[in-house]
Each structure stands twice: as structure tokens, then as C-alpha cells.
């Protein structure tokens, strides 16, 4: 599903050049659950941004579902994002001005479908993460766990092939963290490829693979013996 070859990402200012990714090679198969670990500043989130097509690599090749997307025009990259990719963030990143249901609907805003289909998908996504009863609430009226479930509903409502999660439990207590991990694992089990950046080893242990990064490079790629239950 994903083939990255010598991916580099350089951030430049007038005087400083910072290499966030220094030649990353990575292959991920359809349906895998991959955890990315590493210290702060190692390039995890940058890699996630490139994987999710919200950032572009400075150099290298990135093939997504067999298509070279490293140099994809913004318009087509946006299309891939809305049709094939879902995001979950540490800070949830819900739109404060929209209710839970409206936040989920926002993910379908740029796709053409009938109103009935849209409604059905939204209700289904909310039910999947068990937040349907809070559909008319605003993010500020929800707990952190509920917010993250709403964010997950938004990420999956479009039926993405690839789910990217950037420290999805980082702002949650342990109970809510476990619940979110359970949900993500379920989604992975239902067929979505899941790539998750995390600092927590116990979460990484739930993935099929764990990739370790340091200074913009992949320094380890191990396969986990996945436990039966989180």
C-alpha cells in the first residue's frame, strides 16, 4: 500500500537548514497496524504529515496504493486525502464552532453524495465509536475521551483505506486512552491500514510492526507478536 524510498524533508529558513527526514525507506502493506516511535524531534510527525499528503517530501519517492504521490499536485493530493485517508490527532482538532455530528459531516463536505447517504454514514460513524448520544453537543461540552472518539468518527466516516493517528491518546487519561486504542484496533481489524505515532511502548506493542526513528532516519523496524486483546 505504501512504498517510501529515500524520503527527505528539509526545512529551510534564511540561515538555517534542518533535515527533518534524512532518507526514509518504508513499506507498509494493506491492513497493517504500524506504530512509529522515537524521541521528540526525530521526524515522526513530519513523516506522518507526508504519509497523509498534508506535507510534501523535499526528495524521494512515495507510492501510495501503487501511485506516485510525492509530486502529486495539491488538488489531487486533496482528493486522495478526502477519499482514502483519515487523521486522528493528539489535540483532537475538532472545529469548536461545530457540533459533534457537524464535525463528522465536515469530512464529507468535499465529497458528493446524497443527503440521505451522508446522514446514514454520519450516524454509522458515530455509532461505531459510541458517541451518537452526544451528536448535538459542541466539543467544549465533551470530555477528552469523547472528543477523541468524535475525532475518530470523523476520520473514519469517509471509509479511509489509511488511518493516521498522531499520539491519539496523548491528551487522555489511561481509561480513555485504552478505549481509544481499542477503537483504533477495531478499525484496523475491519480493514483500515493504521499508522500511529506514539511515545508509549504499551501502545506500540499492540501494533503489527513498530518502527523506531532517530534524527530523521528509521533505525529499527520490528514485528510484534500482537496480543489478542488490548
Amino acid at each position: 500500500m505504501i512504498e517510501m524510498t529515500t524520503i527527505e524533508k528539509v526545512f529551510r529558513t534564511e540561515t538555517v537548514e534542518t533535515k527533518a527526514l534524512a532518507g526514509v525507506d518504508l513499506t507498509i502493506k494493506q491492513g497493517e497496524f504500524v506504530a512509529i516511535m522515537g524521541p521528540s524531534g526525530c521526524g515522526k510527525s513530519t513523516l506522518l504529515g507526508i504519509l497523509g499528503l498534508i506535507d510534501k517530501a523535499t526528495r524521494g519517492s512515495y507510492r501510495f496504493e501503487g501511485e506516485e504521490v510525492a509530486t502529486l499536485p495539491e488538488r489531487l493530493a486533496a482528493r486522495r486525502r478526502r477519499e482514502r485517508i483519515g487523521f486522528v490527532f493528539q489535540q483532537f482538532n475538532l472545529v469548536d464552532e461545530l457540533t459533534v455530528a457537524e464535525n463528522v459531516a465536515l469530512a464529507l463536505r468535499y465529497r458528493s453524495m446524497s443527503a440521505g447517504e451522508r446522514k446514514r454514514r454520519i450516524e454509522e460513524a458515530l455509532d461505531r465509536v459510541a458517541i451518537g448520544h452526544r451528536a448535538r453537543h459542541f466539543p467544549a461540552q465533551l470530555s477528552g475521551g469523547q472528543q477523541q472518539r468524535a475525532a475518530i468518527a470523523r476520520a473514519v466516516v469517509g471509509g479511509p483505506a489509511l488511518l493516521l493517528a498522531d499520539e491519539p491518546t496523548g491528551n487522555l487519561d489511561s481509561n480513555n486512552g485504552r478505549e481509544v486504542m481499542r477503537l483504533l484496533s477495531e478499525l484496523n481489524a475491519q480493514g483500515s491500514t493504521l499508522i500511529m505515532v506514539t511515545h508509549a511502548q504499551f501502545q506500540a506493542d499492540q501494533a503489527h510492526r513498530c518502527i523506531h526513528m532517530l534524527d530523521g532516519r528509521v533505525i529499527g523496524d520490528s514485528t510484534n507478536q500482537r496480543p489478542e486483546a488490548a
Binding site: 498534508i54 495539491e74 486533496a78 472545529v95 469548536d96 468535499y110
Partner: peptide, 16 residues
């Protein structure tokens, strides 16, 4: 800015 960034991640093109 955050709302806009979220839209972008959800597939909104720059032009949109």
C-alpha cells in the same frame, strides 16, 4: 487557522 488546517486534512483543496 486550526479549522482551516482540519479542512485541509479532510481533503479540502487549497482553492476550495
Amino acid at each position: 487557522a486550526r479549522e482551516t488546517a482540519i479542512r485541509r486534512t479532510l481533503g479540502a483543496a487549497k482553492g476550495a
